[in-house]
Design a protein around this nucleic acid. Structure first.
Length: 498
RNA sequence: GGGUCCCUAGCUCAACUGGCAGAGCACCGGGCUUUUAACCCGUUGGUUGUGGGUUCGAGUCCCACGGGACCCA
């Protein structure tokens, strides 16, 4: 058909485009297509069909043409739909010349619809004996290598649609993520939690210790911030009497990008009135078991080549216990700072001279302990200094009734008995504000409106936050967050504007 | 922010210490009635990320820029 045989990308596109234009000038593409079956359903339904069988079952399927094999008068195609693949069998003799010739003009990647009888080949491959074909939409661009697919990590992220077309793994992760999120929602709804939506665009970024994205509202002529947590709004709702609330939402933190951080990520936060942090531990154990099952792997999984057990109960250990284990001797907030400095040094942890015992302990934990925890562990009773929104422990007010759930060396959940004393909360905010004054941009600002709300009374409440992306990584055995986010944040492709 | 490495055909990858840019897939042409990444035969396809420099000669060496990967902070 073409007089020149050039095959740069433009020319590959040109060949497809001329077929496309031929379709347009002869009436165009169908606006819809009646499909009777998904590929996967056909495989289930005709599982028992013996080789070389032809049924009288007429079906129609639709999807993308992924492979094409031609034998002169016989053609085979692999059609991929959302559920999987099914083979198309085109016999010039039975399908007719028109159908056979049309099929031969299709390019890999084209969206097609096909109708015919269900059959199996001599080798037993379930197929459709095609006698009707529709080209639903041409793909003007060639697909990546049919065997190697698309490997380039950057292109897989930038053109996720291509990744999804050619890489089965990418599709599986996306599907599993959807199941996980759906199961999370279900787990909380089933327990009487009400799903809510709180603002993303705020006058103050509160509820966590992180740098926000800044934007502006034109009509109000004010600077605004994208939320860094949903925490304080959800607690306002508990104050309002919505005793159990949760939100699964996008959170934005203006920080670096690495294997476990994307500037926008998904967090689930839930708050339960009349519960404390110990109740929340039990809740999380149940939720994680349910979610692991929904993800299809069960509670005993393998993450990055190593076994991991998500069936509870999980180990509970205080932060000071874990640090004591690490340094080989009993330490606590009462250990002299000198001695903690020595332990820090021995553990290779750098510190500043003005750090308190609390700060030294949490630093040793973060730098020298957390990464070595493998099986799920509730690390409890963080110092108050690093927990500005947590309730104090009744026995030792220097500690928070708080925990982090650590699995495979990273944090999957953060939870606590919520601080509901408005005066203590004000004092904590003021401490944070002082740190902010001293140059710590990420320190928590004072949220006067939240303090006002607290004065109306927050009942004793347990709350939690779960990093959904990391949970998906865990359950899909992915080492990088970009693999579980369909469109991860990237630099603009052709350099930054300006 | 610091360090190391990578960018070659649409895709996946080659090209010894600087010496004629190549293969497989895809595409195009031919053959083939049960293939499974079909196979066989024959073509075609390149501003080696961009811009400079060194050199008789640069994919290869140097500099800058763009994008990416990994490690560290």
């Amino acid at each position: 058909m073409s007089e020149h045989n050039e095959t740069t990308e433009d020319q590959l596109i040109e060949g497809r485009r001329s077929k496309h234009e031929a379709v347009l000038s002869s009436g165009g593409y169908p606006h819809r297509f009646d499909r009777t079956d998904l590929a996967a359903d056909l495989h289930t339904r005709f599982n028992d069909l013996e080789p070389a069988a032809v049924t009288d079952e007429r079906v129609s399927v639709a999807g993308r043409l992924m492979l094409h094999r031609s034998f002169g008068k016989l053609q085979f195609g692999t059609l991929q739909d959302v559920s999987g693949t099914i083979q198309l069998f085109v016999d010039r003799k039975t399908a007719g010349r028109d159908v056979a010739e049309e099929f031969a003009t299709f390019d890999l990647g084209d969206w097609i619809g096909a109708g015919g009888l269900v059959m199996t080949t001599k080798r037993g491959e379930l197929s459709i004996k095609v006698d009707e074909l529709d080209l639903l939409q041409k793909s003007l661009r060639p697909l990546p290598d049919k065997w190697h697919g698309l490997h380039d990590v950057e292109q897989r992220s930038r053109r996720r649609y291509v990744d999804l077309i050619v890489n089965q793994e990418a599709r599986a992760v996306a599907m599993t993520r959807a199941k996980i999120v759906s199961e999370l929602r279900d787990q909380f709804c089933r327990r009487g939690f009400i799903e809510v939506e709180t603002p993303i665009l705020l006058h103050q970024a509160t509820g966590a210790i992180a740098r926000p994205f800044v934007t502006e509202h034109n009509a109000l002529d004010v600077e605004m911030y994208l939320r860094i947590a949903t925490e304080l709004y959800l607690k306002r709702l508990v104050i309002g009497g919505m005793e159990r609330v949760f939100e699964i939402g996008r959170i934005f933190r203006n920080e670096g990008i690495d294997a476990t951080h994307n500037p926008e990520f998904t967090m689930l936060e839930a708050y339960q009135a009349f519960a404390d942090f110990r109740d929340i531990m039990e809740l999380i154990e149940k939720v994680f078991v349910g979610v692991a099952r929904a993800a299809g792997g069960g509670v005993d999984i393998v993450y990055q080549g190593r076994e991991l057990h998500l069936g509870g109960p999980y180990r509970r250990a205080t932060l000071t216990e874990l640090v004591s284990e690490r340094v080989g001797t009993e330490v606590s907030l009462d250990t002299p700072v000198e001695s903690l400095r020595t332990h820090a040094r021995d553990a290779g942890v750098e510190y500043e001279d003005d750090w308190s015992a609390a700060r030294l302990l949490s630093e040793i934990y973060e730098e020298a302990v957390e990464a070595s925890i493998w099986e799920p562990t509730f690390v409890t009773h963080q110092p108050i200094e690093v927990s500005p929104l947590s309730r104090r422990n009744a026995d030792d007010p220097r500690l928070a009734d708080r925990f982090e759930l650590v699995i495979a060396g990273s944090e999957y959940a953060n939870a606590f008995s919520e601080l509901n004393d408005p005066d203590d909360q004000r004092a904590r905010f003021e401490t944070q504000a002082a740190a902010r004054e001293a140059g710590d941009e990420a320190a928590h600002p004072i949220d006067e409106d939240y303090l006002l709300a607290l004065e109306y009374g927050l009942p004793p409440t347990g709350g939690l936050g779960i990093g959904v992306d990391r949970l998906v990584m865990l359950l899909t055995d992915q080492a990088h967050i970009r693999e579980v986010i369909l469109f991860p944040t990237l630099r603009p492709e052709h350099g930054a504007a300006e």
